[in-house]
Design a protein around this nucleic acid. Structure first.
Length: 605
DNA sequence: AAGCCCCAG
DNA sequence: CATTCTGGGGCTT
């Protein structure tokens, strides 16, 4: 309140800076993850490829002038020897991201994720504790200081930020020691400044900014668009009103602005332009919705809609299982083709679904869960599209929402998983075909309490497990005849697989049996679909043939497409693998990627 | 509930 | 399909 008085007096001056915020940004995140998985890449120029672009690259590659989001061709020209790794399977990135966040949560519960590679941490409390305990930071300043901090603010933030810098250094050390990742940190009294200053010294460095340097920092920002919070649209509006530079914004008191954006927004933006940001670090929790959507040229048949929905559903089930919660509602989104309407005009309908769909039936395992779900979905679809008339869709999406609260255990999908005897039997299978070493990384118990804490004790029970072991550890594993038998007991009678790779443990096992069945049923019921997607029956019997970069694709959270492939290979009762020995390994990866390409090119583009 | 906007990555 | 996809937020009806 004092604050407000002061600012109405002079908007450029803040008198109090009570918080300490650290912004952590992992250096070229995807590239680092890939280099952990395959250390040989460290010495080579590495680019992470998505579609036709290099989304990020390591620092070796940057010496060639390669930049983020550069076109593939462009990058190759700059560096013909550029090693490319596909970065479309986000599983490892997501996992690693969660581990980073888990490390940071040891410092404060106030950790806010921004994408996979950034986190805000409010360490005000920890700083206060350290200061109370007589922590002395006046000796040496940890890391860089933005500009030459001259004046000292009298609110006490000078000491606090210095302690913050020490904490940030600690965070970075822990992230490196525990995960092998380097990162940058920005330390400031608010989120905006912490983020802005984070990247001033890169890579693997940290920068602290004190309030006296804030005007300089803000003045040095070329475009207003660089200010987090001013996005595409707002930037355009501001520009259209002649507000281009930060100082333009600082001095703006236009009435037209107020009209265009509203008083509150304008106030917020003006504050931002002075480096002021009251927004709190909002602890990131589980998502409120989990959804997928697919864009395409044209869908005009109901049968195509059904197919799409089944595919989306299949992928969604996996994400859902990984999340561990049970949704209470489903939403369907469509975008109708409209030549005049450049806007992606979307429509959506949602309805509640009985959570029992995701629970076991008294008599065993939900016979028609998928059908029920699909029925609900199609019903929603029909609310938006009258199929008796021609229609043309360019997008279909399905999302689950209204998740049940972290139930005391009952009803939670994971607890169900663990309580279901038949599933237990599947879990137990793992012991048959899994080595002890592998067991350590992911024991059934750990999986059961899917506790987000992620970084738990795990690994290290074994003497020396190198980092590359960490990534290589899950490999080759085969289902045996008895595995198949047991799975049959669970009720997935059509299942026939000779190779599971990580599938069994990492994904299949994680899935509630209901969902396991869902996945199976989907495919069993839709032979034409599986055929269209094509089972590469090639089933390469020599996994060693797989190129290393291909080999790493971890089925687990399956980039749904790969998962699909795998499920197909399980499902194909009469495919070549059935005739082979149960021990035969299928090179899932290779066949998967090929088919994915086929699939993508035939439907998506 | 659903449409509309915005934003970030 | 015109920067795709995913998730979040806010405001309005």
């Amino acid at each position: 309140m004092d604050d407000e008085f002061e600012q109405s007096f002079d908007p450029a001056v803040e008198t109090m800076h009570p918080r300490v915020i650290v912004h952590i940004d992992i250096d070229c995140f995807y590239a680092q993850v890939e280099m952990l998985k395959n250390p040989e890449l460290r010495s080579q120029p590495l680019g992470i490829q998505q579609k036709n672009i290099v989304v990020t690259c390591n620092y070796v590659a940057r010496q060639f002038g390669i930049k983020k989001c550069m076109l593939l061709a462009e990058a190759k020209e700059l560096c013909p020897s550029l090693v490319l790794v596909k970065g479309e399977d986000l599983y490892d990135y997501r996992q690693t991201s969660a581990k980073v966040t888990a490390v940071l949560q040891k410092f404060s519960p106030l950790v806010e994720k921004l994408g996979f590679d950034e986190n805000f941490v409010d360490v005000t409390q920890l700083v206060a504790e350290k200061l109370q305990n007589g922590f002395n930071s006046s000796q040496n300043m940890e890391g860089h200081v933005y500009s030459d901090a001259t004046e000292r603010c009298m609110c006490g933030c000078y000491s606090r930020l210095r302690v913050g810098a020490v904490i940030a250094a600690d965070m970075r050390a822990q992230i490196f020691e525990e995960l092998g990742l380097t990162c940058c940190a920005g330390i400031a009294h608010n989120k905006l400044l912490a983020k802005l200053v984070c990247g001033v010294h890169k890579p693997n460095q940290q920068t602290t900014i004190f309030p006296s340097s804030v005007p300089g920092l803000m003045a040095g920002i070329e475009s207003i668009r660089k200010i987090p919070g001013i996005g595409h649209r707002t930037g355009e509006i501001l520009q259209s009103l002649g507000i281009c530079s930060v100082s333009d914004l600082q001095n703006s008191s236009d009435k037209s602005l107020q009209q265009a954006l509203g008083h509150d927004v304008v106030e917020r933006l003006r504050k931002l332009s002075f480096g002021q940001d009251d927004s709190a670090v909002k602890p990131t929790g589980k998502p409120q919705s989990i959804g997928l959507e697919d864009g395409f040229r044209k869908i005009s048949l109901e049968s195509e809609v059904k197919e799409k929905c089944l595919l989306l559903l299949q992928r969604l089930m996996v994400l859902l299982a990984e999340d561990g919660r049970i949704p209470g509602a489903v939403r369907v989104t469509v975008r109708k083709y409209n030549s005049t309407n450049r806007q992606s005009h979307r429509e959506s309908r949602q309805c509640n679904i009985s959570p029992s769909i995701f629970r076991p039936n008294v008599n065993g395992l939900t016979p028609g869960a998928r059908q029920k779900l699909l029925m609900s979905i199609m019903k929603l679809f029909h609310k938006m599209v009258n199929i008796s008339k021609p229609f043309h869709l360019t997008l279909l999406g399905i999302a689950f929402t209204k998740f049940q609260e972290r139930n005391s255990g009952k009803g939670s999908i994971t607890s169900f998983l663990m309580n279901d005897i038949s599933v237990q039997s599947v879990l137990d299978l793992r012991n048959v075909s899994t080595s002890a070493a592998e067991e350590m990384e992911c024991s059934p118990a750990e999986n059961a309490c899917q506790d987000r804490s992620g970084s738990e004790s795990e690994h290290e029970p074994s003497p020396k497990k190198t980092r590359s072991d960490f990534w290589r550890i899950r490999r080759k594993r085969s289902f045996t005849e008895s595995d198949v038998d047991s799975i049959n007991k669970v009720g997935v009678s059509e299942l026939r697989l000779s190779s599971g790779e990580q599938i069994d443990r990492d994904v299949f096992q994680k899935l509630p049996s209901v969902i396991q069945e869902e996945v199976m049923e989907t495919l069993v019921d839709l032979p034409q679909l599986t055929n269209r997607l094509g089972i590469s029956e090639s089933s390469d019997s020599d996994p060693g043939v797989c190129p290393p970069d291909v080999d790493r694709a971890v089925f687990r959270e399956l980039p749904p497409d790969v998962q699909q492939e795998l499920v197909q290979s399980w499902t194909s009762t009469n495919s070549s693998c059935a005739s082979k020995s149960p021990q035969t390994n299928i090179c899932v990866r290779t066949s998967g990627q090929n088919s994915i390409l086929k699939y993508v090119s035939s439907t998506s583009k």
